[in-house]
Amino acid sequence: MSTVRPRPAPSAPAPAADTAVFRTRADEVYAQLKRDVAEFILVPGDRFTENEISDRLGVSRTPVRQALFRLQQEGFVEVLFRSGWRVLPFDFDQFEQLYDLRMVLETTAVHRICEADHRVDRSLLDTLAGIWLVPVAERSTDTAQVAQWDEAFHCSLVAAAGNAEMARVHSDVTDRIRIIRRLDFTQQPRIEATYDEHAKILKAIRANRGDQAAMLLRAHIETSQAEVRKITLHQVHLARHAGKTAPR
């Protein structure tokens, strides 16, 4: 009597060798296009094709398409029927809501930092002090640098509070309002005011005066929020022109 041996189950097909490569390249293209928006290389209303992006970045269309679909889901671009893609116009109602959310997260964070029984990452606060609590003569006048430091200041405050979920949500909000905040730092008086306001907030936090720190932070964010309401598309195009002519 012969024994019928069961056939081995077919093995799953091996993933294509370049799948991971495409995924990595798509991530790189995604990050680059977000930088392009934040740095005014691509501005609201700009139209482009996948081929144009492929040629500019030196990659194939597959990772470009993957990156664009991801950016579409996040509300940065939209696909146009038979005519490529477009950077979405500013949604100022959405910006208002995001600033409101940001204010809740950040004021909550500074209250937590100032609570005596709360574990805080003091190294983050020390790093911020090294940037913002400096003599006037040592302040940076590099608008791009100060814009990055400003973003890091607010993200670090939330991170220092020790709530990972708060930090994750705040990071998402920061991502979505980046272009608006960068526009705020095209004006030198706003840079000087930011140094002064950040210094006052940090001093209140270091003295564990939570209510004062939250009040100062709220006023600081409200000032920035008011500047957002004044932004016009003309300013965006001026910022793009300045970026093209600035020394690299």
Rank of each mutant, 00 (worst) to 15 (best):
T141F: 13
A26Y: 12
L183K: 14
W132V: 10
I177H: 01
R182V: 04
C155F: 10
V29S: 11
P8A: 14
R181C: 03
G162Q: 04
D211L: 04
T194E: 04
V228K: 11
F153E: 05
Q72R: 09
T49K: 01
I179M: 15
T19Q: 11
V64A: 12
K244H: 14
R47V: 09
A164N: 05
M166H: 14
Y99S: 08
S140P: 11
L202Y: 13
S60L: 10
G84W: 00
P135D: 07
L216A: 01
R112S: 03
T232W: 06
R229L: 09
V104T: 06
N208K: 09
S123M: 03
H220Y: 12
R65A: 07
V173H: 09
E115A: 13
T3C: 02
R119I: 11
A219N: 02
D184Y: 15
A12T: 04
C114Q: 05
A159T: 07
G130C: 08
A9T: 03
G243T: 14
P10A: 02
V134N: 05
Q225T: 06
T186A: 11
I113Y: 03
A152Q: 07
A167S: 14
G130L: 06
R102A: 07
C114M: 07
P189M: 02
F22H: 05
Y195T: 02
F90D: 13
A164V: 10
E138R: 06
T232P: 05
D100N: 10
V77T: 09
T107D: 04
S224I: 10
R7P: 11
F153C: 08
C114N: 05
N163T: 07
R176F: 08
L133D: 12
E222D: 14
F185V: 06
P6Y: 00
Q97A: 07
G162P: 01
T49P: 06
R56G: 08
G243D: 03
Q235V: 03
P6T: 00
Q32H: 12
V21Q: 12
G75P: 11
L71S: 05
N163E: 06
R176G: 01
R229V: 11
R206Q: 09
Q94G: 06
I177V: 15
T194F: 01
L57E: 12
A219R: 01
S156D: 06
E197K: 00
R35L: 15
Q212I: 03
S156N: 10
R209W: 00
M166Q: 07
A219S: 05
L57T: 06
E192S: 07
P8F: 01
T127V: 12
I231W: 04
E106L: 07
R5F: 00
R70M: 05
A239I: 11
A144Q: 10
P135C: 11
D117H: 03
W149E: 13
D196W: 00
Q73C: 00
A207G: 04
T62F: 09
Q97D: 12
L80P: 13
F90S: 06
M166D: 08
